[in-house]
Simulated scan of single mutants.
Amino acid sequence: MSHQTLSREELAQYVDHTLLKPESTDADVAALAEEASALGTYSICISPSKLPIALPAGSTVKIATVCGFPSGSHHAEVKAAEAAHAVLDGAHEVDMVINLGAVKSGDWAQVQADIEAVRAAAAHPTVLKVIIESAALTDDEIVKACEASEAAGADFVKTSTGFHPAGGASVHAVELMARTVGGRLGVKASGGVRTAADALAMIAAGATRLGLSGTAAVLDGLDDDGTGPAASATAGATGY
């Protein structure tokens, strides 16, 4: 695993600063937006019912939300309606959960159609990320889920919701996802990325975006010289 050299500001621009706890209040979300703006993260990621949200004056932070979250077992039409509502409410990015039952059944036509429905409802320039719940999948399923996401017009594939008992992101899954999409799509690592070492390991593996809830602690973990700790080959392999 290669050693990454990133400044605090550069690492912050990888981050979707995330708050998806069901009990989160409007005040919690407002505080998240303030913190994201202060930290210089790329975006905030919040529940769709918390939209629309007013960002602090002068903030350049993007607004992301989730769709079909966290199970992915919703009807495609419901996911599409949720995504369309989110866009009207000001979301720049939508992170949808794949139909895991269809994945496990090997029904790749259904998997792709589900993503296509959301893509149609949240057209470009809205960024569509597909959460494949990689910890619950075999390597073959990870590859096929990424292929279905690309075929359906997604912009990113994303490892995890952070709510599945199988766990969150792993370096292995990120490497496999990045290899499969070959730079044509972004790769977001989320779930269990709690330290600077975790974050740098995911970026070294091919992640182009990170979903973090403890962003300040991760950024604070960078070395004073800005190079950060050496990336760990096992960072984020378990837990979320």
Rank of each mutant, 00 (worst) to 15 (best):
V127C: 10
A86M: 07
A120V: 07
V103G: 02
V97T: 10
A84C: 12
E147C: 09
A148D: 03
A109E: 15
V118H: 00
G90W: 01
A86L: 01
A102V: 07
G167M: 06
S149H: 06
A121V: 05
K79W: 04
E147L: 13
V157E: 01
L128W: 06
V127S: 12
L88Q: 15
K79R: 13
G167C: 07
A120W: 03
A148R: 00
H164Y: 12
G168V: 02
V87C: 03
L100T: 14
P165Y: 12
E93T: 03
D140F: 11
G162R: 01
L176E: 03
A81I: 12
G162C: 10
A117E: 06
Q110P: 09
K158C: 09
E133D: 08
A83K: 06
A136N: 11
E93R: 05
D89H: 13
T161M: 02
H124P: 15
I131F: 00
S160W: 02
V103R: 02
K79E: 04
F163W: 14
F163Y: 14
F163I: 07
A122S: 13
E150F: 11
A152F: 08
E93P: 08
A113D: 02
I142S: 05
G101A: 13
H172Y: 14
S170L: 09
Q112P: 03
A120Y: 05
E147H: 08
V157T: 09
A136D: 13
G153Q: 04
H85N: 15
V87P: 01
G168P: 02
A91T: 01
T159S: 10
A91V: 04
V94M: 07
A123T: 12
E150Q: 14
A145G: 09
V111F: 04
G167K: 02
K129V: 04
E133Q: 12
G162I: 04
E141K: 05
A148N: 05
A154K: 02
A173G: 07
V143I: 14
V127H: 11
S134K: 03
A136G: 10
V127W: 12
E147S: 07
K158V: 08
Q112L: 05
A145I: 03
A136Y: 10
G101E: 13
D140I: 11
A166I: 12
A81W: 10
V171T: 11
E133S: 10
I142G: 00
L100R: 13
A123F: 09
L137V: 06
L137A: 06
E141Y: 06
A145E: 01
A151V: 03
D107G: 09
Q110A: 15
E147G: 08
V118R: 01
A173E: 10
S149M: 05
E82S: 14
N99T: 08
G90F: 03
K144D: 12
A117T: 11
T138M: 08
E150W: 10
G168T: 07
S149R: 03
N99W: 03
V94E: 03
A152W: 04
A166V: 11
I115W: 01
S105R: 15
V94Y: 01
A122R: 00
E93F: 06
T126W: 05
V127L: 14
G106C: 12
L128Q: 01
Q110R: 15
D155R: 05
I115C: 04
K129A: 04
E82R: 08
L128Y: 02
